[in-house]
């Protein structure tokens, strides 16, 4: 009940504060339009770098939303409410991650093909692109809860957050963009996707643990 209540509330809050949802998408759109202008090249060059660009954009656009996962709750005091309700902080962190994934991860996945088209991503790569993002966006949200819990009482901690979790996200980028790249070249993406899945499971089990510990540290 607590678990769902927290997810429900977070999704509702993000839904009402629309910028949470469209900010990453606008960010992606703005940057992707710069590529053809900056490169000045035809479809072939764009297609070559498309897997990497689509993936990096998905990653960066999620990164800018991570800071607020816990920070908003910390600042308005509603964090105290669920911490003091005796709620298991592992579950609380997990539900925060799930809510973040609903409001950021899913839009990013659904928007990725648009970016793909703008980058002339080869037609047969879209399935794998979305599948790889489906596996990876939960990781962004889960690691984001850890980072956000660590920096929630720091003013302007966004930069610190990026520095903290970027190294953890680098392997995800390698496997994810690698999967799309292999597919676009006509190879199998199986091994990349399996590694990505492994990362998803790993962060699903461990990240809430770390986030819960980070909340405790910050409250002491």
């Amino acid at each position: 009940m607590r678990f769902w209540a927290l997810i429900k509330r977070d999704v509702l809050v993000s839904w009402r504060k629309k910028s949470n949802i469209y900010q990453p998408l606008v960010f992606q759109l703005l940057i992707v339009t710069m590529f053809p202008l900056g490169l000045g090249a035809g479809a072939q060059t764009l297609a070559k770098i498309a897997p990497a660009v689509v993936w990096i954009l998905a990653l960066l656009s999620t990164l800018i939303t991570l800071e607020n996962i816990f920070k908003d709750d910390y600042e308005d005091g509603s964090l105290d409410l669920y911490v003091l309700s005796g709620m298991n902080l592992y579950l609380a962190s997990l539900s925060k991650a799930i809510a973040h994934w609903f409001t950021t991860g899913i839009p990013v996945i659904l928007f990725a093909p648009v970016i793909g088209v703008l980058m002339h991503l080869p037609d047969h790569s879209y399935g794998i692109l979305m599948l790889s993002l489906l596996l990876a966006t939960p990781i962004f949200s889960l690691l984001g809860t850890v980072g956000s819990a660590l920096i929630m009482n720091i003013k302007n901690g966004g930069m610190l957050l990026s520095v903290l979790i970027m190294p953890l996200l680098a392997p995800i980028l390698i496997f994810g963009a690698g999967a799309v790249l292999e597919t676009s070249l006509g190879n199998s993406a199986y091994s990349h996707l399996m590694l990505l899945l492994g990362c998803t499971v790993l962060s699903l089990t461990l990240a809430p643990l770390a986030a819960a510990a980070a909340i405790k540290i910050n409250l002491e």
Binding site: M1, R2, A5, R9, L12, R16, G77, S78, S85, M87
Partner: peptide, 23 residues
């Protein structure tokens, strides 16, 4: 001092959330 109200939830929704979080 930090009241714990969510600004973009209605009063009733704020109370419901607090109730649910306390089971």
């Amino acid at each position: 001092h930090k009241l714990g109200n969510k600004g973009n939830l209605s009063c009733a929704e704020n109370l419901e959330f607090v109730a649910h979080i306390n089971e």
